[in-house]
Amino acid sequence: MIGVELVKLARRPRNWVSIVLLCALPVTVAIFVAVTHLAPPPGQGPALLSAVLSDGQLFPAAALAIVLPIFLPVAVAVVAGDSIAGEANAGMLRYLLARPVGRTKLLAAKLVALIVYVLLAVVFVAVTSYVTGRLLFGSKPAAVTSTGITTNNVVATSLSGTALTPTDILLRTAGTVAFVTVSMLGVGAIALFLSTMSDSSLGAALGALAALITSGVLVALNSASAVSPYLPTRYWLSWVDFFRQPILWRDIDRGFAIQAIYVLVFLGAAWANFASKDITS
């Protein structure tokens, strides 16, 4: 069942189009920055974008910061919202369930396909932006500073002002990819649940996006600080803590935990609804 869903995922052109569009946005930004040499000042604009002018190896992290607030969640909500509702809308759900396959298994297979899509999208953004960064911004040559520090193994500066080696950047970018991927699973779970409630993919995707917008507004509101730690978008930007020295794990850990809870709750709700739903289309 999982294999079938993965094949469907791979054969659906719109999924690849959405990934290409996701990759295109950071590339566009990189071209403008490389041509004009005008990046936002440090501490402003997307995190780490200011640093890419001196070394392109940080561009994957900056690229994820660019797509994270809007484009990535929209893509995930659309794909997840289409999971069940799309099949129902196309009149395929009845035939899918006519096979000797339980609804729970179908739901699990849809979730796995969604996870693979999110991972693919995030990894593609990271890889294409790495190539773009190296091509457009290059990487730092080896040198020895006036204080005698050899920089042949230092390519960038952390937010704390310490040196980052290529290995540091690789590991921290890998951590960022994992964190951003997991951060999107909460959105995916909400959209998947709404997808079991409706035959309209668009309605499910918009419902999930409405939940995210509400969360974003509340996170920015001081008077809502009591509920802020429990909102799905609260820790989205905490990936930047990978680029501090030492790495601040507090919000990263909480980000992973809160997404796990959202996935658990909304997947449970999707299961409760879908397992006993009358399938008419």
Binding site: S54, A143, T145, T147, I149, T151, V154, A156, T157, S158, G161, T162, A163, L164, Q245, P246
Partner: peptide, 11 residues
């Protein structure tokens, strides 16, 4: 080491 400044060469 955590409470000692360790600036990168570009700082």
């Amino acid at each position: 080491s955590t409470v000692t400044p360790q600036p990168a060469p570009e700082v």
